[in-house]
Nucleic acid binder design. Structure first.
Lengths: 242, 242
DNA sequence: CGGAAGCTTGAATATGCTCAACACGGGTGG
DNA sequence: CCACCCGTGTTGAGCATATTCAAGCTTCCG
């Protein structure tokens, strides 16, 4: 690992220079000097799909930024019923600030790359930098909006609409950095298994599978491989989201 | 309205002195002097149950603190299907900071009393006072946790568990300022109609009604009047929450 | 009182679940 | 190289839960 950098000059750290999310996530709020300070503590880490990064009641010891891949946040009932309560894409910030525990379990849905920051280092930076705190506030508000949007889906949409809504979400969030080009064709790999999708939508895997088949036979999507989907017309998909 | 106060001395404003939520909500982060500054802009307002305070896409012009009663936050689908995405009790802060629109419709679920603050005044205070910003961050995180908790309820619980969970929520949040005394008997008025409860739980009013009847015949609750409920044993209710 | 809104109850229906079998694909080992 | 296996996804049949539709009841207000 050759991520060592000369901390005596204040040029953008090598690591951050090549970071694709440099300007989009939390780091966009930082000056070059602050970035240097932060980079002394960060470490890029990779996790395979399925890896559990933290669980509902473990104390928080570090935060991270998603650089590549998708994380899922889940909660479980005592009897094992599970609900995915959030998905995080690059360049989302991961981790609950100002809290003792996460209250959610964090798992890698796909293979992921994270930029990890120890708890103390981040909290120090936040305390010193109002702009950073504000960024985190905005991310939190975005997550709240997303959670509320999914409450509508969970509570009031049919299985068909739920699956369409999920595909629409992925289609509009997965692309590396391209801005949403509505009405256009989109092609992507699902970052979640059928079981995860079911847990996200409050359905069973069988129902998810059946609804995917219906969307396929209706010509709304093409299932190239189990995980590999083509949406020829995003507007037609959106029309099925209820 | 005799809420005029002498702004030349910096004693706690009369209005705030008698405010029951003075130390619990956002204002708990303020010094006496800051409170005086803030109180120059605030105004207590009352709304009847059912009053709509703002809708999904109206711009935000003011914020508020809930002093009494319950607000409901809702979202609707084009075809009219509705979902309650949040409830706010005293001393919650109401309104999405750093945003152009609310993305939710805010309605008085019961008769409410609010302490209203114009947008500019609050944003100025937040900019000047990191402790206040932090309070708002904490409230936002709490709302996010609550939203995620309800996602589990919406996605993975049965109708019976949903209704029990709702009653448990109200039983533990409605009480004026008493801390949750688990295992004890609780008596309260439901701040929501059956229709609102249904929209909160992603059910129909008929299903809500039937499940309430089942809880009554099972002896878990007593329905004194339509809205007036007694829970003799909170633990028994909790056991039915899934 | 009378009317309307809110709530409850019942019967029939539909949506999504359960259980079960099968298909596909990718890796492992004979 | 093929057989086998295991994880993952699909499909089908029967069933259960919650919805829909419809009627009747209560409570609240004029």
């Amino acid at each position: 690992m050759t991520t060592r950098l000369d901390i005596h000059n204040s040029k953008t750290p090598n690591l951050c220079q090549s970071c694709e999310i440099r300007h989009k996530g939390m780091c966009g709020a930082l000056s070059t000097e602050e970035l240097v300070t932060l980079a002394r503590h960060t470490r890029q880490v990779r996790h395979d799909a399925g890896a559990q990064l933290s669980s509902e009641d473990t104390p928080i010891t570090s935060y991270a930024n998603v650089m590549r891949g998708v994380l899922k946040l889940t909660k479980v009932l005592e009897d094992g019923r599970q609900q995915v309560v959030g998905l995080q894409f690059a360049p989302d910030f991961v981790g609950r600030i100002y809290g003792q525990t996460n209250d959610v379990s964090v798992e890698a849905a796909s293979d992921v790359e994270l930029c990890r920051v120890p708890r103390a280092a981040l909290e120090q930076m936040v305390a010193d930098n109002p702009k950073l705190e504000r960024r985190l506030m905005e991310q939190t508000l975005r997550e709240l909006d997303e959670a509320r949007g999914w409450m509508v889906t969970l509570g009031r949409k049919t299985a068909a609409e739920k699956v369409a809504s999920f595909l629409h979400l992925i289609a509009t969030h997965i692309d590396p950095l391209g801005e949403t080009v509505d009405e256009a064709a989109v092609e992507f790999d699902l970052p979640l298994s059928r079981a995860d999708i079911a847990d996200f939508l409050g359905l069973t895997i069988e129902t998810v599978s059946r609804q995917m088949t219906k969307l396929r036979t209706a010509g709304v999507i093409t299932i190239v491989a189990n995980r590999h989907i083509v949406v020829p017309d995003l507007a037609r998909l959106k029309a099925r989201c209820g």
